[in-house]
Amino acid sequence: MLALQLLLNGIALGAAYALVALGFVLVLNATGAVNFAQGDLVMAGGILAAALAPLLPVPGLLLLPLVLALMAGLGLLLSLAAYLPLRHRPPVAVFISTIAVGIMLQNGVTVLFGPEPRAAPPLLGGGTLDLAGLVVPEQSLAIVAVAALLIGGQQWVFGRTQLGRRLRATAQDPEMARACGVPVTAMVMATFALAAAYAGAAGLLLANQFFVTPTAGGDLILKAYIAVTIGGWGSVPGAVAGALLIALFEVGVSSVLSYPVALGALYVTLLAILVFRPQGLFGEVARRRA
């Protein structure tokens, strides 16, 4: 029974992490650059939701579209300020520019909203359901549902729509895409907007159950980075699997061993995966030249 309960908690946490990692992968695929501000975007989404809640006393589900829209706008700003001026530079320049944006976000939020931890409103209700002795927070179900919906929606957009085809073409080969008439700059900006919107969703979901502080971004970007690497650099299903694996360590392994030991075990497992399966669990399609 406890194992089931832990599994449930782990899946809910993993689903939230998956949303964090997904935004990271989107930008990575579209630009080849690591967006180090992704964790701080998630934090900003959470604080935004918590700050909007007293102004708009509606359930989180109705708040979500507003947060998504505002965060998408922030994503556009991010691409304008930290990516487009550096697009022809080595990717590491974007790494640094997004670190700079992360510093601005983290401290800007502290100045505007204060350093207190905050809670965002629950998506539907804050209660718990009792399913055959299992304590199921409604929010956990909501997290899994929203994450599944957003991930599924993203797969559908990328697989079935003109926009998705253009985004994929941009991701695969920007030069070729431009030659084929794809508005690459617009697509890159759209990707940043989408990634920030995902961060907003993740922030809203995480900030209800687990609260949010202005410094929360650093831990989240680390988790996203690990999830994406474990899953195979750039693979979307891999990132989701990586996120679930991390949550499994945090919830599952730490229920057997202590939390610091579980964290250590996660890093050791990560190193083992890297040494013995350097292409990630799901493989990376990267052939060398010649």
């Binding site: 309960q5 908690n9 782990g10 919830v251 730490s254 229920s255 202590s258």
Partner: peptide, 17 residues
């Protein structure tokens, strides 16, 4: 007794132990 990292999100494992 157990130490918990400040970044830990789900505290059910430590609670149940």
């Amino acid at each position: 007794e157990e130490g918990v990292d400040p970044a830990a999100r789900d505290l059910l494992p430590v609670l149940s132990k």
